[in-house]
């Protein structure tokens, strides 16, 4: 309960800090550039946006965790009765903000690209994002020229075979 109260306080503090805006703006810019033209059929384009999602999400989490003034952090720790609830609250806020960034990165191409995106593909993408180190595997659309319609749209994922 204390951790939730700490999280609410940190969130209220973080949304007033301008430095959390920068990572969000950067990811939005990346998404806008990647999906501005015709990126091709999903899930391939996600493989490109996820490359920036990981570092920017880490940046956002660090920014959220360090928004509070160090002396202010002392007051919060004393009020919360220890470092534990404050660390848990910080983690909650960092997770929530990263989740927002991930949802934005998944949903953006679904909305802006004209290709159908069945729920199964979206769920697969979410599952893959939660497991770093395993990029979204190519479906073969680039190699076969399907989806992109052979209009010279770059294929973002590395050839696997």
């Amino acid at each position: 309960m204390t951790a939730v109260a700490v999280a609410r306080y940190l969130l209220a503090d973080a949304v007033r800090a301008q430095r959390v805006v920068l990572p969000v703006v950067l990811q939005v810019a990346v998404l806008a550039v990647l999906f501005g033209g015709d990126p091709g059929r999903l899930p391939e384009p996600w493989g490109a946006s996820v490359l920036t999602l990981y570092p920017i999400a880490a940046w956002l989490a660090l920014t959220v965790a360090h928004t509070e003034d160090p002396v202010q952090r002392d007051v919060t720790v004393a009020a919360a009765g220890g470092v534990g609830p404050v660390a848990a609250g910080t983690l909650l806020v960092a997770l929530a903000s990263d989740l927002g960034l991930a949802v934005l990165s998944v949903v953006w191409p679904v909305i802006v690209t004209p290709y159908p995106a069945p729920p199964s593909i979206v769920l697969t993408a979410c599952w893959r994002i939660s497991r770093p180190g395993r990029p979204v595997r190519r479906s073969g659309c680039c190699a076969r020229g399907r989806g992109s319609g052979g209009r010279g749209v770059p294929c973002w994922s590395a050839p696997s075979s």
Binding site: A12, D13, R16, A17, D69, V71, Q72, D74, V75, A78, A79, G81
Partner: peptide
Amino acid sequence: VVGYLPDRFPAQLRL
């Protein structure tokens, strides 16, 4: 429940 006032209460708070 503990109340703590640091020696320099920060003046640059956003809330």
